[in-house]
Amino acid sequence: MNLAILRRQLTDLRWHVFWYGIGIAIYAAIMVLLFPTFEGFLTDVQYPEQFLQFFGSVGNLGDPRYFLQTEYFSFVPVILLIYAIMGGTGLFAGDEGRGTLETTLAQPISRGELFRSRVTALLIGLVIICALNTLGWIASVPFVNLQGLGLWTLTWASFATIPLVAAFAGLSVLFAAIAPSRGSAGGLMAVLAIASYLVASFANTIQAIHWARWITPYFYADMSQVLSDGVIWWHQLVLVGIAAVAFVLGALAFRAREIGSGTWQPRAIARGWRYR
């Protein structure tokens, strides 16, 4: 780990992380503060079952757990995936596109060291965003009757998004390491993220493709039950596994990547073990 690179990367990410964290904290606070306004109305409303299933929620929206699962926890991972994709693809490919990666790699540091330092910064940024999110709960939960739903549960649930976002960050880093440019990797990841979200949502409503939810990372995030039933530990392990495998493959591909060649380099993954 190179601390100078880690510090630099965190400094580069600071405003990105700050506004993301504050943004979702405000979103969290607004949702909590809005709940009493809609509580009575939502208790009486009978939403179509498919509608609720699409958002993964199967309970009464008059219950704050189901309300926040549907109105907040279904969407926040999508917002955080933008951070994962932008950050993951920009970590090296953005630098490569600007030409600054060449200046850094001309120094006597290994690519593995550079990779570890920057990926660590990206993941620290993610944890800080989730920590900043807590400010939203602190600013709202004490003022609203959430029927026993406490600050700790909400904070824990916010941090439970990390494995999903880390998995997409890992995939973004991996695709950026084999793609010709940041744009190609970012586009591909955006398609993957949207497709994954839609497949997970539709698979909840359409019985014929119910099985498809198993192949989407969203399913394993358990965001539709994070407050009502909690997450399933092995689901989180699957996401952590995807993240770990993606980061390892990304590291191998980056080690063998031909910097600045602007071509697809999938074979770099297999060649990576030869280099440091």
Partner: peptide, 9 residues
Amino acid sequence: QSDPELPPG
């Protein structure tokens, strides 16, 4: 490098 690019900011 030819036409050096430096860390922005």
